[in-house]
Amino acid sequence: MAATTPAADTAQKQAITLKVNRKTYKLDVEPRETLLDVLRERLDLTGSKKGCDHGQCGACTVHVDGRTANACLLLAVMQQGREITTIEGIAPGGKTNGQERLHPLQAAFIKHDGLQCGYCTPGQIMSGVAVLRDGHADSPAEIREWMSGNICRCGAYAGIVAAIESVKKGDTIG
């Protein structure tokens, strides 16, 4: 995108090392590049979505050192030494019966119709994983409160809450 590339003489790139989904990447970035843009445009990790680009919709939710964060409001240059996990990094890997093995919450979203168009789903799942891990899934009301940073324009909220509850009850999450 030409509009996003500054004139060569003004760009001051910095060499950084990013750790994403247990892999290490060495990159030259401009200070103004967000983590979201670097994930999507440089590392081809397009699971994290750009919704509002202002920290209001949650579609870009990733984990930074185990805590949820809006990747659109983080500068990539600030993430050195941090462990970043995106939606691409939560499945255990490997296959069962020829099917890629999913994280239990990914499987639960499919089972409980936790999505319609799917655009918000990666962010929803990243928040859901944190909600379960941090012990905020004891009731539908608590789940709704702690999932409040993720908006779904299709209105799949009932299915999302059901998916998180089912994993909580099944206790299959690490």
Partner: peptide
């Protein structure tokens, strides 16, 4: 704190 924005924002 629970009225400030949402969990992602409060983490930062």
């Amino acid at each position: 704190t629970k009225l400030i924005a949402d969990p992602q924002v409060r983490n930062m």
